[in-house]
Structures are given as structure tokens and as C-alpha cells.
């Protein structure tokens, strides 16, 4: 039961969406783009989201693509996670996405919505951070393409009225060896205690994390330390642990200290599985 009313628009083109946003913003409607719309509903019902104009991006053709274009795999932002999993072009993404929420919900949750989510796990961003993907964004000033690692700091840095159209990933990353492990408080249901995703590019292991801090991240510092082959794994992991960003989450899923314990073992596993020892 949403305790507020809004106008609902379903634009068919990028331009229409941008225009609708601007008009609504001008009319002080606090417009909101949605794609899966699950946050609008679940956060709206407990008063954590409010809007008077909803702009649903699901009918925009550019947001629905999923294909290889040249050297890139391009994935539209409004595709549901289930769709992405069933197609399985990017196995690391498939594996990571398949641990988000539950199967039925993933039929509604979309890639763009998860990457731009207010709920801070945003697990599906991890593969793209690792693969140095490009984000395709549109806004009042037109379309721009940027490396995700330039634009994603804790969350995707979007200007007012901008939204994510696609994510493009170079083929060589799509097929690289990977690990993706989601560890929960208990058994197989729930938010991550920690999710770690890792890619091996050449001899280098890349690692990105969700659930450790109140945002997902990939840290160059942590990677450098983990890849220091001069040192035994133990030391690499220890030094990486001392270079983590903060704060470490301390909540109902687990205490900060416990998360560090879990992370230590996960990092060992990642290095082991990816043969970086």
C-alpha cells in the first residue's frame, strides 16, 4: 500500500523520458525513474521513497538490448536479472546476479535498478567494476559513455535527470576466469554478509566486494596487495585487510569483526581458486 499518489509515465524513447523528467522536475514533482520498480514499491510503502511522477524506462528500446556489438557485450539497464541469467552471456554476471534476492523477484528486479539501487548492496555492479565496463548514460545534455570505474564511487554518480541506458563490457573480460561467492548470515536466504566477485586478467586478480561496507567497491590498493606475489598468501591477505575502506558494516547481518573474519577466508579462497598462490 503506497501512501502517496503519483503520475505514471511510460516513455518510448530516450528523449521523451528526459523531457518528461525535466517537466516534472520543473513542476516540483520530485520525479523518479524506475525500471523494475521494486524499490519504489518496497521503500515507498515504508516512507523511504517519495515521488509524484514515476517515469518507467521499460519501454525504451535502447534499454532492452542484450547483444555483442563489435568487441563489446552490451546489456540494457531495464533487463530483468532473470533474463540476463537465462541468456548467460557473461558467466560472472550470471553467477553474481543469480544470488540476488530470489528467483521470482529477479524476474522483476532489473540490472539498472540494482546498480542504481538505494538498498546499498548493488551486487550486480561488482562484475562490471571488475571488467572495467563502460556505462552509457543519457541526460538533458545528451548521451555519454564513461568507464564505470570513473563514475561509480559507492554509487553511480548521475546528474539530475540522467539515467543509465546500458553497460558495455569488453569480450575478453566476459570470458575471463572468475569466482563469485555470496556468504550470508545463515544458509541460502538473505542479503549478503559479504559477496566477493573476482576476475583473473592475465596473472592479475581483481576483487570487488558488497556487504562489507555500506556500498559495493573495488579497491586498487587492496588488489595491489593481493597480487604481490613476493609474499605468501597469508601476508597478502593480511595487508589487504588493513587497507579496506570504511566503515565496515556492523548490523543485523553480522558484526564488523565477524565480517573481517569471513572476508579473510573468502580472500584466501579467491586467491586459491584463481591460482594466484
Amino acid at each position: 500500500m503506497l501512501p502517496f499518489d503519483f503520475e505514471y509515465y511510460k516513455p518510448a524513447s530516450l528523449k521523451e523520458a528526459i523531457d518528461l523528467y525535466q517537466t516534472a522536475a520543473k513542476n516540483r514533482k520530485k520525479p523518479m525513474f524506475i525500471s523494475g520498480g521494486t524499490e519504489l514499491i518496497t521503500l515507498g510503502r515504508i516512507n523511504l521513497v517519495h515521488t509524484e511522477a514515476v517515469i518507467d524506462l521499460k519501454d525504451i528500446a535502447e534499454c532492452m538490448v542484450m547483444q555483442f556489438e563489435g568487441d563489446y557485450l552490451v546489456i540494457g539497464s531495464t533487463l530483468s536479472l532473470t533474463k540476463i541469467e537465462e541468456t548467460n552471456h557473461f558467466p560472472l554476471l550470471t553467477k553474481t546476479a543469480s544470488e540476488v534476492a530470489d528467483h521470482t523477484s529477479r524476474g522483476k528486479i532489473t540490472l539498472g535498478g540494482n546498480i542504481c539501487a538505494q538498498i546499498f548492496y548493488r551486487e550486480t555492479v561488482l562484475p562490471f567494476l571488475l571488467a572495467d565496463s563502460q556505462v552509457v548514460i543519457v541526460g538533458p545534455s545528451g548521451i555519454k559513455v564513461s568507464p564505470i570505474n570513473n563514475l561509480f564511487h559507492e554509487q553511480l554518480q548521475l546528474g539530475t535527470g540522467e539515467f543509465l541506458i546500458q553497460v558495455a563490457t569488453a569480450k575478453r573480460f566476459v570470458t575471463a576466469p572468475f569466482v563469485s561467492i555470496k556468504r550470508r548470515q545463515q544458509w541460502d536466504t538473505g542479503y549478503p554478509l559479504i559477496t566477493v566477485a573476482a576476475l583473473k586478467i592475465g596473472e592479475e586478480v581483481r576483487v570487488a566486494l558488497s556487504g562489507l561496507c555500506p556500498f559495493p567497491f573495488r579497491s586498487k590498493k587492496v588488489e595491489t596487495l593481493l597480487n604481490n606475489r613476493e609474499w605468501p598468501i597469508e601476508d597478502r591477505v593480511n595487508s589487504a585487510l588493513s587497507e579496506l575502506p570504511g566503515p565496515i558494516l556492523n548490523d543485523v547481518e553480522g558484526s564488523a569483526e565477524y565480517r573481517l573474519f569471513v572476508l579473510r577466508n573468502l580472500l584466501h579462497d579467491v586467491l586459491e581458486v584463481l591460482g594466484a598462490s
Binding site: 548470515q185 544458509w187 541460502d188 538473505g190 548490523d251 543485523v252
Partner: peptide, 28 residues
């Protein structure tokens, strides 16, 4: 194995949703 209320210092239950208060699911 899993179910409990988590309280904070003000006596608030921190997990009043099935997202965070999790009964057994199929396969567990």
C-alpha cells in the same frame, strides 16, 4: 538456527521484515 529479534539500545527490533527475519525457505 536463524530466527531471532535483533534489538538496539533503544529496544527497537531491527529486523521486522521477512527480508531480514528469515524463516526456512525451500531447500534449506
Amino acid at each position: 538456527g536463524r530466527e531471532t529479534f535483533y534489538f538496539d539500545q533503544l529496544g527497537r527490533v531491527l529486523n521486522p521484515q521477512l527480508r531480514t527475519y528469515r524463516p526456512l525457505h525451500y531447500g534449506e
